[in-house]
């Protein structure tokens, strides 16, 4: 696979791998408790606080390190949920054909037409201050229709192949067909969509937090950004460079890394250049 060795793959995998490692080792890596007051407020970067402290005297570097964990949690949970529902509906509709397929695809079309961000804002605002798990669930519920549509069209193609017919001829049941043939054949597509939605989930989580829609006590990249940008005068001191910039860069590296990885994993010689 030459595609797997492409610069797109390596740059994406390196970024995502590094951030995943930081998320896993957060308790070891972070110098302070991200919620504890560990110094005076708004100290510029120094030996004691590599990225300084925020207005409450909390260590910014520790918040970013723990923020990686929050993003990783939302990414995996939201993408997992979107892929699980999407594959279930897509494969189910593709196998069932007939009216089940028709009804499922009408429902998918209607959900696909609703723009995600305004809906997520409305739902998050109505839910009240939401932690990462609630945010991940609503992002996951917004993501499944796109996956269902792609998976269904691929499943229709796979289901028509000779070896599937042969298995059916030998008396294979539906569940066996799905587990033994359909899901493995759709594997690369499912993997690419999982990574793509993980990236979208990280961006949406940060975006919702930027708009003030996450639990303010939650430690995440977006909430660091939200707190920094709502601090009066953040632009007029050096604060921007060590409070806003690192948080923004963390979000950007994660989102760009996951997007590059998703593109590199996308099956097919002429990669659909995104957004379905």
């Amino acid at each position: 696979m030459s595609r797997a060795r492409s610069p797109l793959f390596w740059s994406g995998a390196t970024l995502v791998g590094t951030l995943a490692l930081i998320a896993m080792l957060a308790p070891v890596l972070s110098p302070y408790d991200p919620r504890a007051v560990s110094g005076p407020s708004l100290v510029p970067p120094s030996g004691a606080h590599l990225l300084g402290t925020n207005d409450a005297g909390q260590d910014i570097l520790s918040q970013l390190i723990w923020g990686a964990r929050s993003s990783a949690l939302v990414a995996v949970l939201a993408a997992g949920l979107a892929v699980a529902i999407g594959v279930f509906v897509g494969v189910g509709a593709g196998l069932a054909r007939g009216w089940v397929d028709a009804v499922a695809m009408r429902v998918v079309d209607v959900f696909l037409a609703v723009p995600a961000l305004p809906l997520l804002i409305l739902v998050a605002a109505l839910l009240g201050p939401s932690g990462p798990i609630a945010i991940a669930v609503i992002i996951g519920l917004a993501g499944w229709p796109a996956i269902a549509r792609i998976v269904r069209s691929q499943a229709l193609g796979v289901a028509r192949r000779g070896y599937v017919d042969a298995a059916r001829g030998f008396g294979a049941g539906r569940l066996y067909l799905v587990g033994r043939h359909l899901v493995p054949a759709l594997g690369p597509l499912i993997a690419a969509n999982f990574v793509y939605w993980a990236g979208t989930a990280v961006a949406l989580q940060a975006g919702l937090a930027f708009l003030g829609l996450s639990d303010p006590t939650e430690v995440s990249w977006g909430s660091v950004l939200n707190r920094a940008l709502s601090h009066p005068g953040v632009y007029f001191t050096s604060e921007w460079t060590w409070w806003v910039l690192p948080a923004g860069l963390a979000i950007t590296l994660a989102v760009v890394g996951l997007a590059f990885l998703a593109l590199a994993l996308e099956p097919g010689s002429n990669p659909r250049l995104r957004r379905s």
Binding site: A203, L225, L229, Y235, G248, T252, A259, F260
Partner: peptide, 16 residues
């Protein structure tokens, strides 16, 4: 590709 995936709220903050 980088611009397309760059979080737009952060880009806006950099521009400001």
């Amino acid at each position: 590709l980088a611009i397309d995936n760059f979080p737009v709220f952060f880009l806006a903050s950099i521009a400001v």
